[in-house]
Design a protein around this nucleic acid. Sequence first.
DNA 1: TTTTTTTTAATGCGAACGCATGATAACCGT
DNA 2: ACGGTTATCATGCGTTCGCATTAAAAAAAA
Lengths: 201, 201
Amino acid sequence: MPKLVDHEQRRRLLTEAVFAVISTQGFEAVSLRDVAQQAGVSMGTVQHYFPTKQQMLSFALSHMRERVLARLQATVGALREPTRRDLIRAATAVMLPVDPAGREEACVNIAFFSAATVTPAYAEQLRDGYGRILAVSIANFREAARLGELRDGINPDVEAPALYFLTQGLIGPILVGLYRPDEALALIDAQLDRVFRPPSS
Amino acid sequence: MPKLVDHEQRRRLLTEAVFAVISTQGFEAVSLRDVAQQAGVSMGTVQHYFPTKQQMLSFALSHMRERVLARLQATVGALREPTRRDLIRAATAVMLPVDPAGREEACVNIAFFSAATVTPAYAEQLRDGYGRILAVSIANFREAARLGELRDGINPDVEAPALYFLTQGLIGPILVGLYRPDEALALIDAQLDRVFRPPSS
DNA sequence: TTTTTTTTAATGCGAACGCATGATAACCGT
DNA sequence: ACGGTTATCATGCGTTCGCATTAAAAAAAA
C-alpha cells in the first residue's frame, strides 16, 4: 500500500522474523518463504528489501550484534552506582541464555558461528563483534585493577579473556540442557570471587 | 561387487565423508549426493546403509563422539608417567582445534550444537557425550586433590567445570580466527598454574 | 488530476533436494 | 554348479528451493 516506509526499519523487522525462524526451526530451515510467513508478508516483500538470501542473513548477523550490544548497554546502564565487579558480572550474565530473548540470541549466534566456519564473511563479522566485546571486558578489568578492586597477583589481561571465554563456553551446554543457568552463574561468581577482593569492610 | 562387507565399518566410512562435507561446505549443505560423491560411491549406496538422512546424521553424531574419545584416550595414553596436571592439560588440549583433525571435529561439533537447539535427539546425544567427558574431568581433578597436587583452597568440583567450559568457549573463537591456538593454550596454562601447586622441590 | 515511483503480491522457472524403484553384478550356502 | 542374498548403481518422482518476472495498488510528484 504505502510508500512512506522506513527502509532500514523494515529490514530490521524482517530480520526479527529471521531470528524467530532460526531459533525455532534451525538455520538450515531458513527460506525466503518461511521468513515471509513468519513476518506476515509475501515472499515478494522479502525479496524487495533483500535482493538475495545471503544479503538477508548477513544483515541479520549485523543486526544481531546491535541487539546484543543494546541489551548489554541497557542492562549495564540500569545499574545504580555499580562497582566494577557489578558491571562485569552484569555484562557477563546478559550473554547467558537465561530468558527467552537471551536464548533466541544464543541460538542465532551459535548458528552463525557454525556457518562462519565455512563462510569467511560471517567469520569476519563475528571476529569484529566479539573482538569488540572482549576489548570492553579487558578495559573493564584494567579499570578494576587500577581502582585496586582486584586481588594481589591478578592480571587483568589474563582474567578478562578467561572470564569471557568461560562465559562463551557455558552458552552451548545451557542451550542443550547439559548445564543449568544457575549453575553457570554460580561458576561465574566463583570465578569473580577469586579475582576480586572481598568487599573490604 | 562384494557381499563380504562389514556393515558398521562401511557406515563409519560414509560418516567420515559426512564430516568432510560438514567441515568444508557446512551443515546445511549436507546432501545425500554430496556425501556419496565425497565417499566416492553412488547415491544408492548411501541410501543402502542409511535409510534416511536423519539416521545418517544421527549416526554421524554418535560416531563423532567415539572419534573424540578415541583421540583423547590415544593422546592421554601416550604420556609416560604423567602427573595429574599433565593428564588434564593433554585432555584439554586435544579438544582445541589445533590440527586439521581437531579443526574438523570442532566444526562438526559446533554444527551439531547448533542443530541441537531445534533437534532434541541431537541435544540428548550431546548432553550424554559431553556430560561423560565432564565427569571424567571432575574425577581427574578430585584425584589430583586427593594426591595433594592442588593448591590450598582449590575446589576440584568448581575448577573442573571451569576449565572444561573455558576450553569449550575457546573453540569457537579459534575457529573464526578471533583467538590463536597458542593464545588459548597460554590461557589454559595460566588457569592450571593457578590451580596446581608449583612443581614442589 | 495526471503521472511517476515505491511497495506489495502473485506466479513461473530451472535446479537441487530426499526418497523410491528397478536393474546389474558379485559373493554365499547348499 | 546354482539359486538366493546382498552390494552397488542408475534413474525417476514429487517437492521445495532461490530467484526472476509481472501486475496491481497506493502515496508522492507534477
